[in-house]
Each structure stands twice: as C-alpha cells, then as structure tokens.
Computed example of a mutant assay.
Amino acid sequence: MPLTSTLKTLDTFLREIWLECCGHMSAFFLRSGGEVGKNTKLGTLPAGLTLHYDYDFGNTTELQITLLGTVSRPKQRKAVRLLCRNLPLVFKCGGCGEEADYICCECEAMEEDPFFCQACMESHGHEYALPVVNSPRMGVCAYCGENDIYDFSDNTEKEK
C-alpha cells in the first residue's frame, strides 16, 4: 500500500477479501489497547508496529497486522497490492470423509464436527449452513466469501 494510504483503505481491503458479511463495525488498536483512527496514514506508523484489528464486536474476528517496513516500487492501480496468500485449508466431511463444502453452524455451536460435503449436508438434520471458505470468518454470521475476488490457483503441480 502507498504510504499515503490510510487504515480505512486497509479496512476496506480486509473486508473485501476476508470479512464482510453485513456491515459490522471494525477498529484498529495498539497493543496497549488504545484505538488508532482509520484516517491514520501508513507513512506515520513506525516499521515493526503491530496493530490489532477487530471486525464485528458481537462475534468478533481478531487479526494481527505487523508493519514490516517500506519498499520503493512503481505506482500501482489498486489501493492494495496482494503479495502472497495462505493456502486454503481442506476440511473433511464428518459423515463420509470427503472434502467438505459446508460448515453447519448449529453443529459448531454444539461443539460437534461441523463439516459436511454436499451429499451429507442434504441428509443432515440441521438447516443453517455456510460454505467452506478461505477466511477466519468462515461459519460466523452470514459470511459466504462472495466478495473475495482473489481466487487461489495452485501452480505447484509438476508439468508432465
């Protein structure tokens, strides 16, 4: 992100890629607990600073953000440039062991195995399920990952 960008820009990016479900409030905090305003420019924050970010103050998703430093590079079109991404976790269906497509929110609340494939979910007794997605917000509120435009493509397969 350009040093002239604000934490509001970062907030918007985090919501788009990982968090946004229905417009919850969010905030950035210092380790000491003091809130850092969203109008704060990145260039005013010291390298090595760790910020804590909370999204949704009811079912809070907490993230930790560390400012590593600055680099000089050409101007970019987008407000945030994604440099890397975690590999999506693979969850197994509690019914048959196949790759899970859904997380049953009722089972998760009862601390039972919440993951189901399409077929097992159809015969499962609960109705409130959300898709398995690449987000710390998976299974919370109404998060479905529909705004995540950063698809993962695995280019590690060996060419034959």
Rank of each mutant, 00 (worst) to 15 (best):
P2Q: 12
P2S: 09
S5V: 09
L7C: 11
L7A: 12
D11V: 12
F13D: 09
L14M: 11
E16V: 14
E16S: 11
I17R: 13
E20S: 12
C21P: 03
C22Q: 04
C22H: 09
H24Y: 03
H24Q: 04
M25N: 14
M25H: 15
A27C: 13
A27N: 10
A27Y: 14
F28T: 02
R31P: 14
G33S: 03
G34L: 10
E35S: 14
E35P: 11
V36A: 02
T40N: 02
K41Y: 01
L42Y: 00
L42F: 02
T44Q: 04
G48C: 05
G48L: 05
L49P: 04
T50F: 06
L51A: 02
D54S: 07
Y55M: 03
F57P: 08
F57N: 07
N59D: 12
N59L: 07
T60Y: 12
Q64W: 14
I65H: 01
I65Q: 04
T66E: 08
T66P: 05
T66S: 07
L68G: 09
G69Q: 01
G69K: 01
T70S: 08
T70Q: 06
T70E: 05
R73K: 14
K75G: 10
Q76F: 11
Q76N: 12
R77F: 11
V80K: 10
R81P: 06
L82W: 10
L83T: 15
L89P: 12
G94P: 03
G94K: 03
G94C: 02
G94F: 00
G95W: 09
C96V: 08
G97Y: 02
I103E: 01
C104Q: 01
C105I: 03
E106K: 14
E106Y: 03
A109G: 02
M110C: 02
D113P: 06
F115N: 08
F115I: 08
F116E: 03
C117T: 02
Q118Y: 15
Q118G: 05
C120G: 00
M121A: 14
M121N: 10
E122F: 09
S123A: 05
G125P: 11
H126L: 00
E127T: 15
P131A: 01
P131V: 01
V132W: 00
V132Q: 00
P136E: 03
R137A: 08
R137H: 06
V140K: 03
V140R: 00
C141T: 03
C141G: 02
D148N: 15
D148C: 07
I149H: 10
D151P: 13
S153N: 14
D154T: 14
N155D: 13
T156E: 05
E159Y: 15
E159A: 13
E159H: 15
K160P: 15
